[in-house]
Design a protein around this nucleic acid. Structure first.
Lengths: 247, 247
DNA sequence: ATCACAAGAATGTTCGAACAAAAATACTAT
DNA sequence: ATAGTATTTTTGTTCGAACATTCTTGTGAT
């Protein structure tokens, strides 16, 4: 005769469609599903162990998320990666994230500051992967990295801006995943990135918007350069069939 | 024995899911389906004359478009409207559209200029509705208005920016639809809006980015004010059940 | 050999029915 | 009367099968 209701916190009222959407989304962003790859129903059905009804639902949503392409009667494919998309993505991400960071610096309270420091601490304590095969480690690093960047802009007080920043961040992760090992194997790069994270956090909390946004922009620009520098080498895994259309 | 292949241009390789997605999207943006309204499968199925499989596919995509909400085992509802959302929407729309307009003014060529003038001409020649019941006229005006605003930023050379501007524009239309008759019944408002359109177009083509963006921002701000001023009167149709959560 | 065309296989699309969960209603006990 | 519970009804979810389209393979004519 407990005083608490019987229902524990794991109820969550989920559906297969929602679950498979989340799983596909993760695998798409993590690059487990290769750009350009065809997403056949039977294949996915046996891999993920669900019927095609929830699969269609999930894939349909992913089309609007721009992670999957669809052609009537010809099925779904993983959205391709391209240099031009990368440039566009990063330019806008820099613009929007800096904008959101400025707003956050203006509006953020002590909890916002505390969350930044907490997220930064967790990120710094995460081991870096030595190989792309260290999926667990890569996943964990990406998760904490995302959370850190989210914590910076979380107080911007604009759901739409946060939503767009999130979408761009997710898409950029598809490019970054391919070179994270390269980054983590260079002591010089590693130090620079870590210093940038810390500098951005400190500047934000010190309400130095100019400095924070300047370093954030630099940080993004640096990531893009690493990706581009390694683009030729990884282009095989980037585009399985089509890939970049214009440059 | 024609030399052309038999298949004419109406093939289009479409599916029921795609069609119903487009129709639902239109009806959602046009306010045909009221904010907060439950979207029951049986009901939609009989209205639109399609099975629930394509319906689920379409609704699922619309969730990622932020036009409908979903709760597991409790179905889909039309996304609510709220004052706070309106403010957020418009602030970001102004920011992004002005940004895109600047880029367009820098990069646009003669075709871009020509398209702006063409779209402006078509917009000016569209009759304004005297009642919300003039659906055909409202639809046509909104279509041409959207096309005009799109033509301004079309040369910004950023697919992501265009995509976000489009999303914000679609969402804003949900708010504007309710007050278009109010606007068109005031000679003063009408003249101001028309002058703004013409001024923006001329400034853009004259490559006067500062003036073009200033008037564009003013134009958006004016629209928001009209919506807000009439918000109380139309709030009944805005929120059918829930609606605005904060403020 | 190459192209066009036809048959077959694979794949995507849609429906209807069975199933499960939630909401509404009816009922009982206090 | 009311709160709580059981029952019914409604609604959402999922699967499997039938259907349509596209892709692949195979055949034959030039």
């Amino acid at each position: 005769m407990s005083l608490q209701p019987v229902a524990v916190a794991d109820d969550e009222s989920t559906t297969l469609g929602i679950e498979i959407y989340a799983r596909l989304r993760r695998d798409l962003i993590a690059g487990h599903l290769k750009p350009g790859e065809r997403l056949r129903f039977r294949q996915l059905s046996s891999i993920y162990g669900v019927g095609i009804a929830p699969l269609r639902e999930a894939l349909s949503r992913l089309v609007s998320d721009q992670l999957v392409r669809f052609e009537g009667h010809r099925g779904y494919t993983v959205a391709p990666l391209s240099l031009s998309d990368l440039h566009d993505l990063c330019a806008l991400r820099t613009e929007l994230s800096c904008n959101a960071l400025r707003r956050s610096i203006t509006r953020g309270d002590e909890d916002w500051e505390a969350e930044i420091l907490a997220a930064l601490h967790r990120l710094e304590r995460t081991p870096l992967p030595h190989s792309v095969e260290d999926r667990k480690i890569v996943d964990e690093w990406e998760l904490r990295h995302d959370r850190f960047h989210y914590s910076l802009i979380a107080a911007c007080d604009s759901p739409w801006l946060l939503h767009f920043c999130g979408a761009l961040s997710d898409h950029f992760q598809r490019y970054r995943r391919g070179v994270i090992v390269v980054t983590s194997s260079s002591q010089e790069l590693l130090k620079r990135v870590r210093d940038q994270h810390r500098t951005i956090a400190e500047a934000a909390i010190a309400r130095d918007a100019d400095r924070a946004t300047a370093v954030l922009a630099e940080h993004f620009q640096g990531s893009v350069e690493v990706v581009i520098r390694n683009y030729e080498e990884v282009s095989l895994s980037l585009s399985a069939g089509n890939g970049d259309e214009a440059n």
